[in-house]
Amino acid sequence: MGRMKKPDGKVVLLGDMNVGKTSLLHRYMERRFQDTVSTVGGAFYLKQWGPYNVSIWDTAGREQFHGLGSMYCRGAAAVILTYDVNNVQSLIELEDRFLALTDSASTDCIFAIVGNKVDLTDECALLPETEDESRSKKPITSCITAKAQKQVHVEDAVALYKRILKYKLLDEKDAPAAEKMCFETSAKTGYKVDYLFETVFDMVVPLILQHRAEGLPQTVDISIYKPAKQAKSGCCA
């Protein structure tokens, strides 16, 4: 039913629970940080980007359990893999649990790796706070937290990025540079959040055009995608 304004490209946020996926999106879309409550399932958003409609899926982090991951990722033009810079395990989980979900993404899918919550690290003193309103609104409790040594460094993310390219059988020369695709953000202060999303969207646009030129089906045409049930058995291995 042609009523729906068809999204032109799909971006998916993946990563463990509590790393700040919802907060990042909230910061970007609503320009603020609030103590979000837990996400159930996935949440779908449309963002106007130039003449294009980019759809964004924010996921809960339990996708393996419900087997919905491949549905959220199907045909995605970009995947934003998110971890918490203060939590080593959250980076490991990206590779162990979430990478396989992206098997259903578009073959030329772009990957971004994002380390969030840099405001909690000792390096954050250097970071400019883009917006201050969050400070006053947040209960003091969260400000008391002593600044900790950063647990995950960009180099770890870069290494992961390169392993992902290998996993996808992509040549490093053909894919965007690792340094460009690894981000460190703070949803709380807004640090580099716009930069992250805008970089990704800008890179999605050429893909949209290319897909259009090739006449590829767009992400949402589900009638084409009544999937064979056993399509992705290796999904989380």
Partner: peptide, 18 residues
């Protein structure tokens, strides 16, 4: 209860197993 305890802003549409 599950819905009220869940983050939502109006722009979003939620799809979840329940």
């Amino acid at each position: 209860n599950l819905i009220s305890a869940t983050s939502a802003f109006q722009a979003g549409e939620i799809w979840t197993p329940i």
